[in-house]
């Protein structure tokens, strides 16, 4: 059970940093609490006493969505449900509604934030690969260090670890609009709702003006190693080439060796190939490009 002496709800960044300074190590940040509360239970951390909880969800800078030119900025306390509801996000971050719909359930999505998802740094986090495929940049801020920017790919360093410093907050997430892009998110877990990914793949891609060649392809994979990763080898193989089933199939076989997780390796390998393939196909389909049939058999019932 979680227990604290003070639960603070700062209304500005300045106030939050003031609290962090005053309470130092006694303080812990909380956003949606959907990782924190289940963590403080038997079998995990057990009974936990945190002297001061600082809830950052009421800070204006951490909320809201703003489109400036081609650049989208959203607060770190944005909840996952918003990706399904907010028309700006739906248009400019096309992979995120797909992520959101697979994320927990309607109710938890009202609480769970992208900042929490990033900092929790689960190898199976769903939000992180989505943001990786959008090539997002994280805006971090601390009182002593001021603002710094980190590409989301460099943010997690291992399960539960990231480059975030003590006293530092993720304030916002920024990325270029992907409005013209096709996108998909594939996830497999043990059941349909409320399920932690065994493997998930986020894909964001764009074709050239002719509509026949890959121009920009970004694929991120999670659940198979200590941190989610971008599949640069696939992306390179596809970029600039003509869309064919054979090419996609070849690219999908490249990341097999990325599977490093401790359990169910063979299964995850098989899933990765068909997921990367399906991710690309679905992303293409979302912008009206039909690849046609594959020679190898599609893995349809992923829960097998």
């Amino acid at each position: 059970m979680l227990d604290c002496d003070q639960y603070l709800l700062p209304k500005s960044l300045d106030e939050a940093f003031g609290f962090l300074e005053t309470h130092g190590d006694a303080a812990q940040i909380v956003a949606g609490a959907t990782d924190l509360l289940p963590w403080a239970r038997e079998g995990r951390a057990g009974d936990v006493h945190i002297p001061v909880l600082i809830d950052i969800t009421r800070i204006p800078e951490l909320n809201g969505v703003a489109l400036e030119g081609n650049r989208l900025r959203l607060g770190a306390a944005t909840v996952f449900q918003k990706f399904l509801k907010d028309s700006v996000l739906r248009e400019h971050a096309p992979v995120m509604p797909h992520v959101a719909v697979w994320f927990a359930d309607d109710q938890l999505r009202q609480s769970a934030t992208i900042g929490g998802n990033l900092v929790n740094a689960s190898p199976a986090a769903d939000g992180t690969p989505g943001l990786m495929a959008l090539d997002a940049e994280l805006v971090l801020h601390s009182r002593t260090g001021g603002e710094r920017r980190v590409n989301v790919t460099d943010f997690p360093t291992g399960p539960s670890f990231s480059v975030l410093n003590n006293g530092e907050l993720i304030v916002a997430v920024e990325f270029d609009s992907a409005a013209e892009y096709g996108a998909s998110f594939e996830k497999v877990g043990h059941r349909r709702s409320l399920v932690i990914s065994t493997v998930c793949v986020a894909t964001v891609l764009k074709l050239d003006e002719v509509g026949q060649n890959f121009e920009d392809v970004r694929i991120a994979l999670a659940g198979v190693g200590p941190v989610p990763v971008r599949l640069s080898e696939c992306e390179e193989m596809l970029s600039g080439k003509t869309v064919t089933a054979a090419l996609i199939d070849a690219a999908a076989h490249l990341p097999i060796d990325r599977v490093q997780s401790r359990t169910r390796q063979d299964y995850r390998r098989e899933v990765v190939v068909s997921f990367v393939r399906r991710g690309i196909v679905e992303a293409l389909a979302s912008i009206g490009c039909d690849v046609g049939p594959f020679e190898t058999q599609e893995l349809e019932t992923a829960n097998g």
Binding site: Y7, L9, V30, Q107, L108
Partner: peptide, 12 residues
Amino acid sequence: VLVKSCMVPVAK
């Protein structure tokens, strides 16, 4: 908004 109240600190 429907939420799971076991996941919501009362202060919120």
